Amino acid sequence: MSIIIKFFVAPNRDAAAAVVEGGPDGVFDSLTYGNFDAEEALIEWESIFTGRNFEELVDADVPDVVADPGDGEGPLVLVASLPLQDALTAAGEPRLAEVSQQWVRERAEDGEVFAPETAAWILTGLAELARGIGDPESRLYCWMA
Rank of each mutant, 00 (worst) to 15 (best):
G111M: 05
Y33C: 09
A80L: 02
A10E: 09
D14K: 06
E40N: 15
F114R: 10
G72C: 08
E112M: 01
D61R: 13
Q101I: 00
Q101N: 05
V65C: 13
R52Y: 10
E112Q: 13
D61E: 15
T89E: 04
T124W: 00
A16I: 03
L88T: 05
P116L: 08
T89S: 09
F49L: 14
A15K: 02
L129D: 03
Y141H: 08
R107I: 00
G132T: 07
P75W: 05
F49S: 12
A80S: 13
I43S: 03
A115S: 14
W45M: 15
W45V: 13
G74C: 10
I4A: 11
D25M: 14
Q85A: 12
E55A: 14
R52V: 14
V79G: 00
A60F: 12
T32E: 15
I4C: 12
P69S: 05
L88E: 07
A10N: 09
G23Q: 11
P11I: 06
W143N: 05
E137N: 07
T124C: 01
V104G: 00
V79N: 00
D71G: 14
A41F: 08
W143L: 10
D64P: 00
R95V: 13
P116E: 07
R131W: 04
A127R: 03
V58R: 15
L123A: 06
A67Q: 03
E44G: 05
S138V: 05
D86C: 02
E56Y: 08
G125E: 07
A91M: 07
R13W: 02
V66G: 05
T89P: 00
L84D: 02
G125L: 09
L129P: 01
G26I: 13
W103S: 10
S2Q: 10
I43Q: 04
A145L: 14
N35D: 14
A115G: 04
R105E: 14
A10G: 12
D37K: 07
E98P: 00
P75G: 09
R139I: 10
M1E: 13
S81M: 11
V20E: 08
E21K: 15
